Computed example of a mutant assay.
Amino acid sequence: MKAIICQAHGLPNTLIYDDIPEPQIDAHEVLIRVEACAVNYPDILMIQDKYQVKPDLPFSPGGEVCGIVEKVGSEVTHLYVGQHVLALCGWGGFAEKVKVTAERVFEVPQEIDAVSAAASLYTFATAYHALKDRAMLKSGETMLVMGASGGVGLAAVVLGKLMGAHVMAAGSSLEKLEICKTYGAEVLMDYNKDDFKERIKEATNGKGVDVVLDVVGGKYADPAMRGMAWKGRYLIAGFTSGEIPKIPFNLPLLKGCAVLGVFWGRFSKEEPEAHRQNIKALTKLLVEGKIKHHVFKTYKLNEASKALQDMMDRKIIGKAVVTIS
């Protein structure tokens, strides 16, 4: 079968498109014929050996797939051959077939096409866990999303609006921010032009923001923290800037605010029932058309390296998806 292969850690241009053997499943796994695989920032980190999860070489990147179940392990009882599913494989998704532990596989209603399904699970599940479980976001609160045009960021904009929050979106260009506006952002902040402190003060009448969701890190974390309201919640969800910020501890003290980590991957394993209920709720919202993700572009399997490079170059707004025929 065809796959994108990482033989040695490096940048996207070092990946190889070639044939590999079909995966062999054990009693607790299923084999999925991949129809679509989302492109996510952890894929870029993983091929460079910079991610907390480190698969053995060689491997295929791609951690979020939609497809059809082809084989079912002898101990698997809730899945069947021919079933339309979403799977959180972690890696291996940039391939024609992938094996996945059954507990990481979820049925997809027929009303949701493969590209929409693949574009939604990882990002919406991360954002939902952040806003619902960690921040306990309330209707009427003000939320600032850093990196709002990315996958998790735009999902947070959509969910924040749905949950009744006043959403502020921060991004690096007018084009990206206009997309955020169409998905519900009320206040737009340009990293390259706006004074964060003044914009937050102006937009909140001096109160500050109740919740910050930060997937960027770097130099923007300090002004965002300084813009927190009393008893606000600062959610750390990633460092796409490439820099892990050092936040002065006096700021949370003075703001009476909480700094909360958002590690959805571990949450899904540590609290599987809570995670499953979140997925169930999100699937219902997708079917009802209440949430959707902006798909920037679809790429063929042999173009997956280009998709990862476009993400590194910050060209992607929303989600990119690799499709496998």
Rank of each mutant, 00 (worst) to 15 (best):
Y51V: 10
S268F: 01
L154P: 01
V157Q: 05
W91Q: 09
L260K: 14
P61W: 02
D195V: 03
K181P: 00
L159A: 08
K255N: 13
E288M: 10
E107S: 14
R33C: 00
P42Y: 06
D113Q: 06
V100K: 04
V209T: 06
P248W: 00
G150P: 08
A224N: 02
T323G: 04
I4H: 00
V53Y: 14
G147Y: 07
F267V: 08
D43R: 04
D214T: 11
L253T: 13
K176R: 15
A135I: 10
H28G: 10
A304W: 06
V81W: 01
V212L: 11
I244M: 13
R266Q: 14
Y183F: 15
V216W: 11
L213W: 11
V98N: 04
V211K: 12
V39Y: 06
T77Q: 14
V187H: 04
Y51H: 11
I25Q: 12
V152C: 04
P61T: 04
E273W: 03
S325D: 15
S173P: 11
L253C: 12
L188Y: 00
G206D: 01
D222H: 12
K132I: 12
S149L: 01
N205T: 06
H84W: 05
E243L: 13
E243A: 14
H294P: 03
K193F: 00
A3Q: 05
K97S: 03
A27E: 14
P42T: 08
I316Q: 02
N205A: 14
P58S: 12
G208K: 07
P61F: 05
D222Q: 15
G153D: 09
A165Y: 03
G153A: 10
F59I: 12
Y128S: 10
K319D: 07
E96D: 01
S268K: 14
M189P: 03
K290H: 09
A36W: 07
K181Y: 00
T283I: 13
K97M: 12
A118D: 10
E22C: 06
R266M: 12
K219D: 15
H28M: 02
K315M: 08
A119D: 05
L235M: 06
L282H: 00
S139R: 14
D49P: 00
G261T: 12
E271I: 00
R134T: 04
S305P: 04
K284Q: 15
I5H: 04
K219W: 09
Q7E: 15
V69P: 02
W264K: 02
I279T: 04
L253I: 15
E75A: 15
E198M: 08
P55Q: 03
I291H: 07
Y17R: 03
D49E: 11
T14C: 12
F296S: 09
F239N: 05
V215W: 02
